[in-house]
């Protein structure tokens, strides 16, 4: 882990746009990744299956185009974005709202196995040093760093009062391009993003190439993960379902569907959840 002062030549120049650039900036991982073109993909921690899929697909599109994915490594959308970038073979930068040491020692659950993967191909960065206790304002403050690092910011899902809306505000102030992903009406997790679009604060993101064009990615071969042709896998695009729900979506049932699911299970294309539902792997 190293600390960079703003005067350092390898300090990411994008951060100099900030009113008060992080001093020092703590980095755990590859430094040069911070100089590459990047898109931030952020959103609520209380994501839906739809948000998880979109965040993942956008991150994979970035990875395919060689664009770095920046996010805040919170639960939910942020984690889905980091994971999508890694699974797509791309690079990703996690901007933490606490010190790197604190985060590394306290992180649990699904995020924990991502830490070494991020450090190996990208970086964990933070503007906070070890003894500091993470607070609401530390996370709010790092949101500005996320916005500054990226040339475009995509808010995938944000409910009312979501921290991602602070990132959106910072993005506008810094003059970066702001996208919001339109969501279903009535979905609590899309109230904030739909409002950003309705108020004209953000451009509606309708396809990944919109965001890639902003960062100047020319690679046309960056088509997002194509929709699966298997009806069972297609039914599970927007989150885990139980057997009867899959049967309903696929308009299939009986022994045929069960044999299909069992085969996908033993092949590892589906994974069981503890509550009897299945999710795509």
């Amino acid at each position: 882990m190293i600390a960079l002062a703003p005067s350092d030549p390898s300090y990411p120049s994008a951060l100099r746009d900030l009113e008060r650039p992080p001093d020092p900036l703590w980095i755990d991982g590859l430094i040069d990744v911070l100089a590459r073109p990047a898109v931030a993909i952020v959103g609520t921690r209380r994501m839906t299956g739809y948000g998880e899929r979109v965040a993942r697909e956008l991150a994979m599109a970035c990875a395919a185009a060689g664009i770095v994915v920046v996010s805040g490594f919170a639960q939910g959308i942020d984690t889905a974005a980091h994971r999508g970038a890694l699974d797509g073979g791309g690079q990703t930068v996690a901007v933490l709202g606490e010190s790197i040491t604190t985060f590394r020692t306290t992180v649990r659950g699904r995020r924990r196995p991502l830490v070494p993967r991020i450090v190996a191909s990208g970086a964990l960065i933070s503007e906070f040093a070890a003894p500091l206790t993470p607070r609401y304002w530390t996370f709010a403050q790092r949101n500005a760093t996320i916005a500054a690092l990226a040339r475009a910011v995509v808010v995938v899902e944000a409910g009312e009062g979501s921290g991602a809306l602070i990132t959106a505000e910072d993005t506008r102030r810094l003059g970066r391009t702001l996208f919001a992903v339109p969501g279903p009406l009535g979905s609590a997790a899309s109230i904030g993003t739909n409002a950003l679009i309705a108020n004209g604060f953000a451009r509606a993101l309708l396809a990944p190439d919109q965001m890639l064009r902003v960062v100047g990615a020319t690679d046309a071969a960056c088509a997002p993960e194509s929709a699966p042709t298997d009806p069972v896998l297609a039914a599970l695009r927007d989150g885990p379902l139980g057997v009867d729900e899959i049967a309903q979506r696929c308009r299939m049932g009986g022994a045929e569907l069960r044999s299909k699911i069992a085969l996908l299970l033993v092949r590892g294309q589906l994974a069981p959840l503890a509550d009897g539902r299945f999710r795509r792997t």
Partner: peptide, 28 residues
């Protein structure tokens, strides 16, 4: 619920007891 909270909830059941449950079914 936050994703980690859901995971912790499921983790309470992991291990030897869940291993002895042969039928797990979702009631939507």
């Amino acid at each position: 619920c936050l994703p980690d909270a859901i995971e912790r909830y499921h983790a309470r059941l992991s291990g030897p007891l869940m291993d002895r449950i042969d039928l797990r079914v979702h009631v939507p």
